[in-house]
Design a protein around this nucleic acid. Structure first.
Lengths: 109, 109
DNA sequence: ATTATACATCGCAATATTACGATTAATATT
DNA sequence: AATATTAATCGTAATATTGCGATGTATAAT
């Protein structure tokens, strides 16, 4: 055990859970907020900004890349990271679909 | 190690990460969707609906209760669960604050 | 060519998560 | 009172996550 039973859930549920999991860490939220603020950044900017080791930042960037929400372009020795607008909007849309407004408050126990 | 360095992040970043973490599992997404569809439910409904063991469902419910997004009322031998409208809207609001539309697409690398 | 810079990856240790059987606690039914 | 129902909690096993030092790789500068 220790492994999620993905086979018993829908594609949509698994996909949303995977996206949320990638976002569900303060360092990764901080990374995304920093990229949005600066438009782009390199790994080393984040090491200085967040105060985590370079290996740790690199790993968090990898997880964000895994869901496609950021992409990196090689620029000489450094890698320029930025938000992937399409994926960003896609996740936003899926979240809005999930977070409906009508949740039947009146019939609540 | 294996522990998140919460002290180096802002309250807001930690809070959002905690909320997202609680939502970042297909079973918990399925649970919330089921409650929204039915307005309320008891633990046993979910055991039958999802096909996970009762102990497992109970644990997922506990994590959702931890962030306050659901609440449970004791009704005889069973516990009636429902969405907490206030927390639901609060998380929705925090997500909307995070998922801004202007992410500087033009200046991307 | 050698050295410096930037970043990814490996390997490890500590901790957290997922899942479930077994048990417990509390209320309902008989 | 004895039994059934419902759900929380405990204990355990398997796996995943977090963080970092060390190492590897690729380009830039000297």
């Amino acid at each position: 055990m220790g492994v999620t039973k993905t086979e018993i859930f829908t594609e949509q549920q698994n996909r949303l859970a995977t996206s949320l999991k990638a976002l569900a860490h303060p360092a990764r939220i901080a990374i995304l907020q920093y990229i949005i603020k600066q438009n782009t950044c390199i790994c080393n900017d984040l090491v200085e900004e967040l105060g985590l080791a370079q290996a740790t930042i690199s790993q968090h960037l990898k997880e964000l890349k895994n869901i496609g929400i950021i992409k990196g372009n090689i620029e000489g020795t450094s890698v320029c990271y930025c938000i992937d607008e399409n994926v960003w909007q896609q996740i936003k849309k899926e979240l809005n679909t999930f977070f409906v407004d009508d949740i039947g408050i009146d019939k609540c126990c």
